[in-house]
């Protein structure tokens, strides 16, 4: 999902991935993240993307990609078939984020989700002081033309993971590429990244 000039640093995600693992990147865009993972981590990866033009770019990079709609879930993918399932900057654009999260931790041994934190100070301030939906460098869209339909705050997401019984293994919270301690992240992080426990080690699967 293209959210404008700023995007969550790929390096942060790459740092979470073990070398030579298998990676499924949901909403992989032009395949740049997978490409970097192949080069730096020697992973075996594939992407899912809905836009034809992006698919052409993926293939041009030598990345295998499936044209599919994430709102249809991951029923084609066997349980535990990937080491990592990544959802990079796409959670907020899904019609059924809960369904997809469940699917991600089913298919992946780990899941990585990152999203813009709606609870960030400036967003709150814009809503509180101006009485308008936040529009800024991190959330560049007007409310009427945004692809982002399911915003949440970091705290909302933590709550959701606990309600879904998905263990959070690690979080990375950034304010414009700088780390923010978890304690203050809901207020000061612009971007949050969660490493979630997938199928192995979960009791009910």
């Amino acid at each position: 999902m293209d959210r404008g000039p700023h995007r969550f640093s790929y390096d942060q995600i790459i740092g979470l991935i073990e070398p030579r693992s298998t990676v499924l990147d949901l909403g992989c865009g032009d395949g740049e993240l997978l490409h970097q993972l192949m080069v730096t981590r020697d992973i075996r990866g594939r992407g899912v993307e809905i836009e034809e033009a992006k698919i052409r770019e993926c293939l041009a990079k030598g990345i295998s990609v499936f044209q599919g709609d994430l709102d249809e879930g991951l029923k084609e993918y066997a349980t535990g078939s990937y080491d990592y399932v990544i959802l990079n900057e796409t959670l907020q654009a899904l019609h059924q984020p809960v369904m997809l999260l469940r699917e991600m931790v089913r298919v992946g041994r780990r899941a990585i989700v990152n999203f813009p934190n709606f609870g960030y100070l400036i967003n709150r301030a814009q809503l509180l002081l101006l009485g308008r939906m936040p529009v800024n460098r991190d959330l560049p869209y007007e409310w009427y033309d945004t692809p982002n339909i399911h915003f949440c705050t970091r705290r909302d997401f933590v709550d959701l993971c606990s309600r879904l019984d998905i263990p959070v293994l690690r979080t990375i919270d950034l304010r414009h590429e700088r780390h923010v301690p978890p304690r203050y992240a809901n207020l000061f992080a612009t971007e949050c990244c969660f490493l979630l426990q997938g199928v192995d080690g979960r009791k009910s699967v």
Partner: peptide
């Protein structure tokens, strides 16, 4: 494509 993916074969798919 789905059958190939389930067998973990390397496949790309697009509908033009």
């Amino acid at each position: 494509v789905v059958a190939l993916m389930r067998r973990r074969k390397d496949v790309s798919y697009t509908e033009l």
